[in-house]
Design a binder for these strands. Structure first.
Lengths: 337, 337
DNA sequence: CGCATTATTGAAAACCCTTACATTTTCTAG
DNA sequence: CTAGAAAATGTAAGGGTTTTCAATAATGCG
């Protein structure tokens, strides 16, 4: 029933091809793997047999023989596909070039599924692991640190000692942003923290804190939306009914939009009274009105590079640099003055 | 270097476990696979050995022996992750329950990559194929029809003869919607067609046409954004500078937002002058202001059911129904009167 | 206690490749 | 034409499972 077995047709293996071409299976293998020791003439015979029989090498058997699967596991937080689109495209395109397959795994915030995923990865003998780590819990990161496998963190700086990472330095981005405002005498700055992307939010707070410290001040302006609040929208609406700030910083576009909507409801004019910056750019930050100021980043490259590094790791190349920082560009749009 | 080989540590296989437990590898295999013929006592010995050695069965070897990989390939159109989020979650969650792995493949609109993907699927011996088919070209569908493998179409009605499909009947949705307006004497209705999701758009047009026909009219109101137009936003802006309609229907949220923005620019009031319905609901249809009227669908279930059917297909169960239609609910929000 | 069953275990083939090493063929030069 | 070297090919051992069939151990019964 499986392996597309239509019952009658005999499975076509390397043996069939060998027989058809009148050579040994070793020769066929060599032709498949583009070894250059095969005589031109026999190579042609074999190739003809391959075409005639429609032979496709069995990657499973190859995996067993070679002890590698040319498959790498990708772990992303549940619900991240909205903003991870281009990253995945870059990753998949690159994987295709290097003939790697990608298996997909998601983690749900709050539930420590990492053990389960690792178990799966071990059993399926994936060659490596790429993790989009903007929402893993400390416990999950801890779990990962005990796991020996070529690993690339994607999105944020890896917390593991040995793993590589490809990331955008959002901490620095926020630092620069906040510094700019502080220099202009504005220090009524808040960061919205909905606890869905703790890893990232913590970075933002660090960046802001650093800027404040350098100005001899202390940053305490984060609005944490409690985890037990179902409707963060209502929470924010209520918040902005009683509070007003000069600059609001959000991580994701959805939060930025919520801020705009709730401010509008409460007659807070953006950007006149309150300015707003969304850290992560998305197609929606441009579609929404007012257009949301944000940091433009090379998402596609982020994914592509992560995969690229993974191939290096797997080919045994020495990867000297462990951290790859990609550039962002701040783009002021209509939510900032 | 691969298979997490730290060089020194010996790979732990079913042999190691057998030796450790003082039984044959056949017995270990039986314990792993929860065969009930093993004596309670020996089972315990084996399980202890497994834990002691930290043994994890090699899925690759299992795949070879069993001629199945418990992996299914998922093909989605490039750039669809925005709106496919929940579908994938449903799919992955269900896959997890049935212990299937998912490999991810994307197709770029306009490029026929299906052959490449099929080649890959054959080589990697995936057990089945799930396709999110709202943007495949006719050529790609054609290619798929020649391919013998358990297959489930997801999103739209499958065009293949044999394959199963799980879908939302958007044709019917549009039919009902348009009929309602026609009944109210409104027939100035257009569908925005940006040619990125031809499969789906064609369905919408069919639904509208049917409604028009029943009213003795002919539907011709689709605005096709030419493929060579880079900025569909500009195109629409230009369009609405000179045209106005009673009802605009779009497929995706991004198109709906573009319509709202361009109408606003051209001082066309929504919903007073122009009403707008977005077929596919998304988190953004609720976040945007005005909130965009749309059809609510059980996206998660869509993915979950597709995977569920796949498992049935693979376990050899007879799947009597080939088409699974899930319900939609029209939700009028602020872009309709 | 001995035999016929039945429950449990083991041996070995199969799954389909790769590759080290052995063997054969081809080529080169004397 | 032949020895020796180089190139091409073949043989067979692995890679880690599952599973059939044979062998052994346990059980029940007279």
């Amino acid at each position: 029933m499986n392996q597309y077995g239509n019952g009658e047709k005999k499975r076509v293996t390397i043996y069939s091809v060998a027989k058809e071409a009148g050579v040994s299976l070793a020769t066929v293998s060599r032709v498949i793997n583009e070894s250059d020791v095969v005589k031109e003439n026999t190579k042609k015979k074999v190739q003809e047999a391959i075409i005639k029989l429609g032979y496709k090498p069995n990657a499973v058997a190859q995996g067993l023989a070679l002890k590698k699967t040319t498959t790498i596991a990708l772990v992303v937080p549940d619900g991240s596909f909205n903003y991870i689109d281009k990253v995945i495209n870059g990753l998949l395109d690159t994987a295709k070039i290097y003939k790697y397959n990608i298996t997909l795994h998601t983690t749900t915030a709050g539930i420590n599924e990492m053990n389960e995923i690792i178990d799966n990865v071990v059993k399926s003998r994936a060659d490596g692991l790429i993790l989009y780590n903007d929402a893993f819990s400390a416990k999950e990161i801890e779990t990962l640190n005990h796991f020996q496998i070529p690993m690339v963190y994607l999105g944020n700086k890896g917390t593991g000692e040995s793993a590589c990472c490809v990331y955008i330095d959002y901490e620095q981005a926020v630092y620069e942003l906040v510094t700019r405002y502080l220099n202009n005498g504005i220090d009524d700055i808040v960061i919205i923290d909905d606890r869905k992307n703790p890893t990232s939010i913590d970075l933002l707070i660090r960046g802001a804190s650093k800027a404040f410290n350098e100005h001899g001040k202390t940053f305490g302006g984060f609005i944490t939306i409690p985890e037990d609040v179902h409707n963060s929208y209502e929470f924010l609406s209520n918040y902005f009914a009683h509070n007003k700030h000069k600059l609001v910083i959000t991580y994701r576009d959805s939060q930025a939009i919520a801020v705009i909507n709730t401010c509008t409801e409460n007659n807070i004019r953006i950007p006149d009274e309150t300015e707003l910056v969304c850290i992560k750019d998305s197609r929606y930050t441009d579609m929404f009105r007012p257009r949301i100021s944000s940091f433009i980043v090379p998402s596609y490259d982020l994914g592509a590079l992560a995969m690229r590094i993974m191939t290096k790791l797997l080919s045994g190349d020495i990867v000297r640099d462990k951290e790859f920082k990609l550039n962002y560009v701040y783009k002021a749009k209509e939510t900032t003055k």
